[in-house]
Structures are given as C-alpha cells and as structure tokens.
Nucleic acid binder design. Structure first.
Length: 219
DNA sequence: AACTCGGGGCA
DNA sequence: TGCCCAGAGTT
C-alpha cells in the first residue's frame, strides 16, 4: 500500500499537472449546485452545463420545478441521459425541500442523502463546494485512480475508497484533492490508455509499474 | 453483487 | 454504428 509520504508527493505532482482543477458544474447558489449535481449522475459535467444554462433561467426556486408537468421538465433535460428518473427525482426533491427544509438546501451530507437522487457522491460534492465542508466525493475517476495507485484495494467499495483517501489526506486538502483527482483521472490516468509512460507518479504507482513492465502499453 | 435506467461523444 | 463514458436505487 502507498505511504502517506508517497501520497503527499502524488498530490504535489497532480497540482503541477492541473493547477486549475476546480468544480466544473456551473452554478451560483447551493440550490443550483444541487440540481446540477443530481443531473450529473452518469454523464459528464460538460453535458450538464449545456442544459443548466437554460434550465436555471427558467427555474429559480424549488416551487418552480413542481409548478410544471413532469413531461415539460423531462423535455428541458432531455439531452442528458436518464432524464425520466432525474425529472422525477428533481420534482420529489423540490417538494421535500419545501416541506421539510423551508425551501433551503440542508448543509449536511447525511441529510442530503435522504433526498431522492442524492447519493453519497452527490451529497459530498454539494457540501464541499457549496458549504465548504471538507469532503472527498468518490466517483469512478477517484475509484479507478485510487485503486491503480495502491491507495485502495481492488475490491473496495466507493465508501471504502473514500475512507482510505480521508485517512491518507490532511483534512484541509480533502475538497481540493477531489478536484485534482477528477482531472488526473479524466485527462491522464484514463480508463483506457492511461498515460503511464509520461506519468510523474509512475515511480510510486502499483498499476503503472506493472503496466510498464508488461509493455502492453501504447507509447 | 447484479441489474436497470438513456442519452451524447467519439472512433 | 458500435463502443465508451458516468451514480443512484432496487432486488
């Protein structure tokens, strides 16, 4: 397993590679971030941003989302995947915010998870980006990178990966680490054709060294 | 643990 | 045109 010192070195190298890593969802308040993050499940942030530009012009408050027929909301988000589920979740979620939370987004990860369409990953993004709560939102990028580097075991669940990362990372860096790892995973440590031959983390990466030894990697 | 829900992007 | 990408909920 990777040591804390090695992981600290990795974070420094990722910072050099992606100094501008940041949340890519376009939003101006916690409610918009919540909607954008729910929409982002199983699709890219770039795709979500195409939809939310118009969406947030039309829908400002939870009340606005439940004031239209579900077919209309479905149509407004049709170009992203899973739009029927997401439209239903957003209307149910808006109703819950009005009924239980005075129309506000609760700034608590475990409370957010009770909302429909909000799992642990989405809740972690919302509390960390909107409310500054230290959190590491584990998506497929973080999961893959953590397992390749040797920070987590191959059989670990996303929650186990999150716990391993929190254990090895200073708390004040949790939120930043999430964004760095997203960029590193998407553009460098890709699911297909990871850039091991030019990777600055190669000397401490379990999977990278294995791949270089086997030389089945395209350079 | 496996399955389902749906599109866009890209080769 | 077929493969790859990206979470939550249910069984």
């Amino acid at each position: 397993m990777m040591t804390k010192a090695q992981w600290s070195h990795c974070l420094e190298e990722m910072d050099k590679m992606f100094p501008d890593a940041h949340c890519e969802l376009v939003h101006s308040n916690p409610f918009e971030l919540l909607i954008a993050t729910v929409l982002s499940a199983q699709c890219t942030d770039a795709l979500v941003n195409k939809v939310t530009k118009d969406l947030f012009q039309k829908y400002k408050k939870p009340e606005d989302y439940i004031s239209v027929p579900i077919e209309e909301l479905q149509n407004d988000i049709r170009s992203i995947g899973l739009f029927r589920n997401k439209a239903k979740n957003i209307q149910a979620l808006s109703l819950m915010l009005i009924d239980q939370f005075n129309g506000e987004v609760p700034p608590d990860r475990d409370v957010l998870t009770t909302l429909p369409g909000v799992g642990r990953k989405t809740a972690n993004v919302v509390v960390s980006v909107a409310f500054g709560v230290p959190a590491i939102a584990v998506d497929t990028h973080l999961e893959r990178v953590s397992k390749r580097l040797g920070l987590a075991r191959w059989k670990d669940t996303p929650l186990q990966v999150e716990e391993a990362l929190m254990k090895k990372t200073p708390k004040e860096l949790w939120s930043k680490t999430h964004h760095q790892m997203i960029f590193f995973g998407r553009y460098h440590c890709k699911a297909q054709n990871p850039q091991c031959p030019v990777c600055p983390l190669l000397d401490v990466c379990r999977e990278g060294k294995k791949r270089m030894k086997n030389r089945d990697v395209r350079v």
